[in-house]
């Protein structure tokens, strides 16, 4: 096991984050604050509560998931895309590192960064609402699993993309709609019956529902199912990455 190699990639990626602190940290804090002003303040004053939870509070888990998913994907995809773009990937590919070690380095750093952002959003939220977390351990478990699974997914996108447009494509046209339609800002009970059924095909519904349960014990779908879905997504991403590296997809000719 090349532990030094993993550390080298991990800390190099984390250093990159420090260099772009404004973009990495300040921007999610700012957008969280804006969501609270608009959704919690303006709209929330008319909705009062959802399933017994104050609306401003209700949107916290969804808001965190929205940032975690988009940040995990963009961090991880950019992390591996940039060395491919500049050509510096040759060094990683010719180093005595297994593909597993390379992934641990890149995905570990991207997931860590998302975790930090998630935590910052949670702290920011505490300034706007009276925060309570019913199952903190489960909350952290959901948080960590989501960060890892979606960082892996981002890594796949970064490997697959061979230009900047492709890099942005999946997050913009797939992930953002799925998150917005996944019950970030509402309970799916509030939808017409037909759309309640349709929305069950959206994997993000299970993530947000499970995560929200860990806060308020309120869920759209059984929490076990949520956990199974995220674990399944993680395994699927691992499988795809394993296949990519085994075949040298877009890395080795």
């Amino acid at each position: 096991m090349n532990v030094e190699g993993i550390k080298a990639i991990y800390f190099n990626e984390m250093r990159r984050t420090r260099n772009t602190l404004l973009q990495s940290i300040v921007s999610p804090v700012l957008s969280t604050a804006l969501y609270f002003v608009v959704f919690g303040g303006a709209i929330g004053s008319r909705i009062q509560s959802v399933e017994g939870v104050d609306y401003g509070l209700f949107i916290v888990p969804g808001l965190m998931m929205l940032s975690l998913l988009t940040q995990s994907i963009s961090n991880a995809s950019f992390g591996i895309f940039f060395p491919k773009f500049t050509g510096t990937i040759y060094e990683v590919m010719s180093a005595p590192m297994s593909f597993f070690e390379v992934i641990v380095g890149y995905v570990g750093a991207a997931a860590t960064k998302s975790l930090i952002i998630g935590t910052i959003i949670l702290i920011t939220a505490a300034f706007f609402v009276d925060l309570r977390i019913a199952h903190p351990v489960w909350m952290v478990a959901f948080l960590v699993l989501t960060c890892i699974a979606f960082s892996l997914f981002g890594f796949i996108i970064g490997l697959w993309a061979d230009n900047f447009e492709k890099l942005q494509l999946i997050p913009l046209i797939v992930i953002t709609p799925l998150v917005f339609l996944g019950g970030s800002f509402y309970s799916i009970d509030m939808l017409p019956e037909f759309w309640q059924k349709v929305t069950l095909f959206n994997p993000v519904v299970y993530l947000i529902s499970g995560f929200r349960w860990s806060f308020f014990e309120v869920a759209d779908v059984p929490v076990g199912l949520s956990l199974a879905m995220i674990a399944g997504f993680l395994v699927l991403c691992l499988g795809i990455v394993w296949w990519m590296f085994k075949t040298g997809y877009k890395l080795r000719s």
Partner: peptide, 26 residues
Amino acid sequence: LVPQELAIAPFDVVANTVRLSRGLFG
């Protein structure tokens, strides 16, 4: 390996990028 192309990470500090190389090789 010194590649033919000038493949560099433009925003990396010289000492850091050389340290990274050493780490990658364990």
